[in-house]
Design a protein around this nucleic acid. Structure first.
Lengths: 193, 193, 193, 193
DNA sequence: AATGAATGAGCCTTCATTCAT
DNA sequence: AATGAATGAAGGCTCATTCAT
């Protein structure tokens, strides 16, 4: 996605990956207010090195989000292929789970303090395509009502992430998630006399 | 709730109210990172005046949240009294609406960056009591399934606020809200043969 | 000293005296960093009232020092009249005692952060005259060596105040004060063969 | 005393030393109320640089005091070794001299606004040990009366510093210092008949 | 390329002083 | 005359970003 005239030197590539990973974990745990110096310290590099790879804090954010998006999409597609009927529900669940421990991703998806569509239009488009794909498969499988579209699902993802962060994993799963699922299910036709 | 030996002087009361209002709007729009100086500027007072009324930024937050909570609760109870069956749905909608333009309230309810239960235990308790009250009325009216409790509703509120912020009012109302409502409705009994 | 066209109204005079007293106690206990608002609060008046009587914090300081100086001088002269030989020692002791609990007076005498001679030349002159007077009486009484002058005594006062503040009253009296006294006493003439 | 995993980079060490020196001079001249920004300006660095080396204003104070203490102790021990009988007097004189131009050191020794024993217990202990050592040597040499202890000497130091600050160097030396010395000298035994 | 020191704008908060009530 | 609210200039400290080593 990011093009470079020359591939990174091996040690530079290692540093970049390490910073990305550490930054992801740190922001996820502590929020976006963590100083870059702290990221550098945890990654075992100098602050200058972080800035060499990511010229602003914002760009580090972007890189993290792009990275996560990529992973999320891969996994979702795999699940949908394996079980189309459950695909959408599995995806929703997975996104809630991710988002709960991943403030950056959540906010990126929700567009809070970070405009995904503007910052990473490719990632945004690919994400929406994936949602549409998975949704269509589940609808064809008859497990999701047909008057729901990809934008609705994205909205639910945003909501579920917030809920998941607010309430514990297990409680969300057992108490709220079923409500959402019931809402998405194909409604019973009115009982005929 | 806050007691003062003597009521504030007229000018002071005016300033206090003005700061509160401006701070509410500003935080809602810009988030909690806005400097106090900016609040003061918008309110047309000196920074010292803000600090006279609210000795820390945190306390200004608290005052805003307490104020909003109070209003929200009042309105919700009035609605529930007028139409018990619709009470819960009206409440959910109202909270989503409020929360969308009111980051402070949202975060306070969700416990993000502000521990409502700790900072304003009275407000928190009253809020939960109100939720339980409205829910019970709707359940008695037969419009909400009985295996849902106040904590579930609070979770949904958090989710709806996030969704509402993400998506426009009208779209949320027409596309996502019905799903939530369907999920909360009393399920059809399995069709007997 | 300070002239006024009209004498203060009774209530104003009462307020002025009260502020002076409270400010003296507060500065003595807490140091000069105490805000004027705090003085006002303790005195039970508004901050504006303090400023009506003492147009700056500095001037409040001056008034306190002048007041204390006056009292110190009165008492010292009385003691010297009663017992000329002990007069100087009593005076030194008294000043150490005062100064220990009275940061303002100490610093004023020492000229630290407050130039007594410049701010209150009358008080300064009167103080030095008093020192000279008491010293002369003790020298005539034969209890103090004759090659010591008023400036030396003032220097010792400054030192004793610092020492007293550093060490407790009783320890200063029993361990260090005798050394000073021995130093001031008329030296033994060299033993003839 | 302070250990660092790696020695500071040359430029950093230069800056640190420069800040320390400038801060010493500035605090000595102007007192502790000088803003850090002013120190930084005089040192020709940014405020952030001061804070990099000394994370709080307090810690800058401590570093200065520790530095001075170290020098004072070294010098005093050297003098005492060279001339035990004069050692204590030389020490007193030196401390008075230092303290007069060094509000930080004075206040640290006197415990005014800075609790040496708490902030730098090692320095405090070493200082007291040094005082005791020098005193003992002078007492053994017969130049100081035996009923004086290290705490008394410390008290005198506090007093002398205050006096020195109040009065010029030469005057203190010629007029007051002899009094103190006379007080410390071994008293003449009462003349036998 | 990496390092980490330096920068400096900006934030929260305090407080001497002024001024409307 | 008294009150206490308002002002606004600092001050200590943080941190994104730049730059010398």
């Amino acid at each position: 996605m990011t093009e470079r005239s020359r591939p990174l030197r091996a040690d530079a590539a290692r540093n970049r990956a390490r910073v990305l990973q550490v930054a992801y974990e740190t922001f996820a745990q502590e929020g976006a207010a963590v100083p870059i110096d702290e990221i550098a310290r945890r990654a075992g590099v100098g602050a200058g090195t972080v800035y060499r790879h990511f010229p602003t804090k914002e760009s580090l954010f972007q890189a993290i989000v792009a990275d996560r998006m990529h992973q999320v999409i891969e996994r979702a597609l795999a699940q949908a292929a394996a079980d189309p009927g459950e695909g959408l529900y599995a995806f929703l669940f997975q996104m809630a789970e991710q988002g709960a421990t991943d403030l950056g991703l959540t906010d990126a998806v929700a567009g809070v303090g970070f405009d995904l569509a503007e910052a990473l239009p490719d990632a945004e488009r690919k994400f929406m395509d994936t949602v549409a794909d998975i949704l269509a498969r589940s609808q064809r499988a008859g497990t999701v009502r047909s008057d729901v579209d990809a934008a609705d699902i994205k909205t639910l993802i945003v909501g579920l992430q917030a809920m998941r962060r607010f309430r514990g994993d297990s409680e969300l799963m057992h108490r709220v998630y079923p409500l959402i699922r019931a809402g998405l299910a194909v409604p019973e036709p009115p009982r005929s006399a």
